[in-house]
Design a protein around this nucleic acid. Sequence first.
DNA 1: TAGATTGTTAATCGATTAACAATC
DNA 2: TAGATTGTTAATCGATTAACAATC
Lengths: 212, 212
Amino acid sequence: MNKERIPEAVIRRLPKYFRYLKEMEERGAVRVSSSKMSRDLGFNASQIRRDLNCFGGFGQQGYGYSVPKLRSEIARIMGLNREHTVAVIGAGNIGQALVSYDRFAREGFKVAAIFDVAPGRIGQEAGGQRIRPLSELEEFVKKTPVEIGVICTPQSAAQDTADLLVRLGFRGIWNFAPIDVQVPAGVSLENVHLNDSLYVLAYRLRAESSEI
Amino acid sequence: MNKERIPEAVIRRLPKYFRYLKEMEERGAVRVSSSKMSRDLGFNASQIRRDLNCFGGFGQQGYGYSVPKLRSEIARIMGLNREHTVAVIGAGNIGQALVSYDRFAREGFKVAAIFDVAPGRIGQEAGGQRIRPLSELEEFVKKTPVEIGVICTPQSAAQDTADLLVRLGFRGIWNFAPIDVQVPAGVSLENVHLNDSLYVLAYRLRAESSEI
DNA sequence: TAGATTGTTAATCGATTAACAATC
DNA sequence: TAGATTGTTAATCGATTAACAATC
């Protein structure tokens, strides 16, 4: 077990391990070796053992890893062993889709409420939730603590929304606006950037077609 | 200019350069230096010069880079100087949100059609498009060539959908299902993994709270 | 010309992979 | 015990950063 800072690359691989182990467990597997994981996930076996050892010695020489134990350890490391509460800011297409997307709820991320500023949207329904006026957010979080704010506003409102969420004590921000919002240290942030992903795809299409 | 393979890390930074230069151009900036970009983007200035030099010597000693020229070069490199056609497979929450999201259309990614298999969805409207039966996809792409397929199906149908898209000659796949789909060489693929991003956020929340 | 800034080589840093002793 | 596989150190690889000559 390594007590140093966890490299970003390792953190980004944790969800892959988790998804893999969850599937293995559902299929009834009880043990797995780093070499089997290597074959299935396409990561180097040394890398897998090294990654897992950042968090503790979960394996056993000569045997490998216990699938249920390793899955539950990784869930614990990622904080997936408890529920998270989420508030969605912006009830446009993406905001509504996220509220309606039951997969997140099934994985423990519960949408407590969805907010918007547009009078035409306030009061409408989205995913079984009444869309509330953003002006009620402050009061709402006083009654119902919420950890994660999801920014689904237009780009122009994204940074202001982030500032508001920080001021109201949100501890994590999941940003879908196509801009890197800035938050102070202590607030966790994931900028999603769907656009960037599409741009990278366009790049590859162009590169594939022009290089041969 | 460097004729070797472009590192993945450089490709992932291209969208950031593009967004930045677009904004600079809209504000009327005509020149920019690597050191100014470094301050604004938070990348090292050497890295920026090195990145841009992968594709060509776009700068001028003593002056820097022309904003409009660099923006248009990067647009060309990423294939953003032309339109792309897109078909969305799966008219659930995310599929419908993507069809309705006009930002993609504004950036040159036009949704030609949206498909589903559920009788309850077929014939309904989403973002001004009639939802078509997936069985019509083959016929559709014969008449209207489509480059990019967007997988918005449930996880269980994702790989089959990818296989179908490959068979029908799609050149790029943008996958929103929470699984790494496999495609043969020559087909470009971006797995989005919204879940993974949320898991990483949960990890950081947990790490922030337990390390101090 | 003098000043500025690129393009590019060299140095550093960090991440990945290989190797193997420890041990179940 | 013998075989298997981890945990961990050492070697390699690649990406980032620093330095500076080239040159506008």
